[in-house]
Simulated assay, not measured.
Amino acid sequence: MDFQTGFFYLFAAVLLFAAYRVITARNPVHAVLYLMLSFSQASALWLLLKAEFLGITLVLVYLGAVMVLFLFVVMMLDINMDALRQGFWKHFPVAALLGGIVAAELIAVLWVGFPSVPVSAAVPVPTEVSNTHALGVLLYTEYLYPVQVAAVILLVAMVAAIALTLRQRKDSKAINPSLQVHVRAADRLVVVPMAATRKSEEPTPAEEGKA
């Protein structure tokens, strides 16, 4: 067994363990951390398969953005785990049935195997360039217009998010930092002179008669 096969079994074992802990961890924060570990191991498997673009995309998109967002959301929300576990055994038969169907389909596909591609229809793979370079050339030549449309949509979404964040809201309590810097103590604090002690007023004869 060479070192590449050894790394494959190592990453696959850690991936299976992390995926198992995602669905069995009681703490949702721990589940998200195990999910991030499983994504990292899947990225390592992509790198072993010489799919560098997919591995780097998995790390940048899921680990760098999506899972960090999930982690912050889970940590900020006060999730009541007791309320979530109340209907576990009620929905367990349906979940087990669906899981068994999915497992049977995967086993059937792996057992039968994939059909072999005819030699005449096989596309030659260039050896002088990497698959990332070949994918980039394909995206920016044949699929140039879909890539530009996706870029425009993302740009519009980014501009809309910035516009919604920077708009003036009436219910916002944000203060302009320039006003805080140029503020003077005389504008915010007024010292009022007051006597240290004050004599009590003596009651008038009318008030004494009423008493």
Rank of each mutant, 00 (worst) to 15 (best):
V156Y: 12
A134K: 14
P124H: 05
G99K: 03
T165F: 15
F17V: 01
Q180Y: 10
V109Q: 06
V66F: 06
K90P: 00
S130P: 03
R184E: 03
L138C: 10
V59R: 04
L10Q: 11
M1N: 08
V109G: 08
A104C: 06
W89T: 06
A12K: 01
E128Y: 04
T204C: 00
L77K: 15
P28R: 01
L48A: 02
G209C: 01
V147N: 13
L71V: 02
V152P: 01
L54E: 01
S200G: 13
K90T: 15
H30V: 11
A103C: 07
L47Y: 09
V129T: 15
V119T: 03
A121F: 09
A122V: 02
R198V: 15
R26F: 09
G55K: 05
Q168L: 14
V123I: 15
E52S: 09
L155K: 05
W111T: 13
L16W: 10
Y9E: 15
V149Y: 08
A95Y: 02
I101G: 03
D82H: 07
Y140S: 13
V73S: 13
A25Y: 03
L154D: 09
L63D: 01
A122D: 00
L144R: 15
W89M: 08
F72G: 12
H182A: 08
K50E: 04
P115V: 08
T132I: 02
L71G: 00
R184M: 08
A95P: 01
L189I: 15
